[in-house]
Amino acid sequence: MPKIKSLEELRKLREETIKSMRVRKSTSTKITVGMGTCGIAAGAREVMHAILDELEKRKIDANVITVGCIGLCAEEPLVTIERGGQPGITYGKINVEKVPKLIEEHLIKGDIIDEWVISRG
């Protein structure tokens, strides 16, 4: 990808993305990362960026969204994956090292990593 230095360059690249968006169907995969004080202190920002990098590397289309504290602070960083209208699976104590395996198992193979799950639905 070319380096983007100005908003003008962004405007040009936009056209290309719109073309590629038409080819791909819009995604139904949503990945939510808890970004309350508890999440941030536990490394949630870094986890979110590891997820973005992994999605880019593997060319997976998904929406990554940050939310506030949901009250499971001791289990942070929390990552919830929802696919195709199915109930979400929430994983606890996710760190940067666990992210590639999480994406590989859950999003590529479609297998839930049971020992990391802390809540379903």
Binding site: R11, L13, R14, T17, S20
Partner: peptide, 15 residues
């Protein structure tokens, strides 16, 4: 600039 592309779109984030 992005128009109908949401900010959280993975390409938009990359840019």
């Amino acid at each position: 600039i992005l128009g109908n592309i949401p900010l959280a779109n993975i390409n938009a984030i990359k840019w």
